[in-house]
Design a protein around this nucleic acid. Structure first.
Lengths: 243, 243
DNA sequence: TGTTGCCAGTTTGTCCGACAATCATACGAT
DNA sequence: ATCGTATGATTGTCGGACAAACTGGCAACA
């Protein structure tokens, strides 16, 4: 009866070029750090105009697959940085009407097991980095922006100690979303600062002792504390997050 | 002594244009679905060449902030689709040497609480969608690719039932990474298919009954089963994932 | 009435050619 | 050894061009 055809897909050349280069990077035929030929050469190889190549490069650049190393004109292959990926995801979440409640729930689920994994897998180098981050956070004193930044850094160090890039990358957008509201909270709730530092220290102790249960527990308390802070600060948890 | 200067940053025009439009979208000054002016008009407004505008558009397009609705030439504002974001993240993870073990660990952490949240927050509509996805998975019969696709869809429905976009988006890259290796596993381990279906049914029952503990538990078993399947299939868990 | 064909205007995809600014390199001067 | 300069390569940006695809309207036609 009803003869149905699929939409015939016409892919513009710039997307085909981007796909071709991207495929080479994903398959590791182009290795990290390797430099791409100049645009004119790429245009010659693909048989398209330089403008078309440039559009393709912009796409790969924004996916983090290519970047220009400082002080070099040629593009080089790179593995996407956590911060860039996290920014993409957090922007997406902002547009999907994420609330403080959503974010907090995700942190509650993700962070305690992540702390436990860190306690299990940490090396002494990880320990040192984490200790440094915690000290830096304490040293931020009254500078709220710095405190928040460095608290996020403590979480990042914890994830690094867990040696699981999946968890580390899953966490990144949460940290980026957390920052603005956390700044407000700390400004309004003076005691929050010291509670955060205290939680960090306990966490470090547990991770150092490779005590998974304790690490999980202190991280859980830490996250619960965030929620209490939000409530004390009078922040509506069902409010949409903003950039 | 050592006078240090920060690197002076020169931003090319195409990135400034992209940032300007992106900022408008993020701040919701441009609402979803709204159509962007034509490229020539944008070029006029920004005072740059159309080629420059196009490079900026490619960047926003690949971030999922803009897209062309089928059968329309003008770009329109869109919220990034989960699949697109997930693809970006999973590509990043592939380049960061993620192993099956890493992926499985992340699933172990994320999925059971997500199932519990679904049991708590599900509506009857969610239930219906989940039931449909599970039936579809069962109906895939011997078609491995379809089975895997539809298993992922069951997870997506579960996340949707949890009504937390953060969790849904965090899960997406994991599902995309899972597919290739899961296909291999199911092909090698015949009994895996029926175990998966059985787990789905138990999960649905628990979510329907709003039994959080049971939902968490069955999901945990489901994920554990994956691991057993990998071991039976002789897949080395410390092997790097590939596209 | 509803389909088809045609026309003009708009917009994108792609191309070409051009040029200033920046970077790498080598070479020569101090 | 440091500096200045010349040279060539490469990017960022520009202007203009044109075919293809889509839009909307209007006329022809069954």
């Amino acid at each position: 009866m009803s003869v149905e055809f699929d939409r015939v897909l016409i892919e513009p050349a710039y997307r085909k070029v981007a796909a071709a280069i991207g495929e080479r990077i994903l398959s590791r035929a182009l290795r990290e750090g390797e430099r791409l030929p100049p645009e004119t050469e790429l245009a010659r190889q693909f048989g398209v105009n330089r403008s078309t190549v440039r559009e393709a490069l912009r796409e790969l650049e924004s996916r983090g697959l290519l970047r220009r190393r400082p002080g070099s004109k040629l593009m080089s292959v790179s593995r996407p940085q956590h911060s860039a990926i996290g920014q993409g995801v957090s922007h997406a979440l902002l547009l999907h009407d994420v609330t403080v409640q959503h974010l907090w729930e995700a942190l509650t689920i993700l962070e305690p097991p992540l702390a436990a994994a860190a306690a299990r897998a940490r090396t002494t180098a990880d320990l040192e980095a984490l200790g440094g981050a915690i000290d830096a956070c304490g040293a931020a004193a009254v500078d709220t922006a710095a405190t928040v930044q460095r608290t996020a850094e403590v979480f990042r160090c914890t994830a690094r100690a867990a040696h699981n890039p999946v968890l580390g990358l899953a966490q990144e957008p949460l940290l980026q979303l957390l920052e603005p509201s956390l700044r407000i909270m700390i400004d309004r709730v003076p005691q929050a600062r010291s509670r955060i530092i205290a939680a960090h220290r306990r966490l470090l102790e547990a991770i150092e002792a490779q005590d998974e249960a304790a690490a999980r527990d202190w991280m859980a308390r830490h996250i619960r504390d965030f929620r209490r802070g939000y409530e004390l600060a009078g922040i509506d948890l069902s409010l949409r997050l903003t950039a």
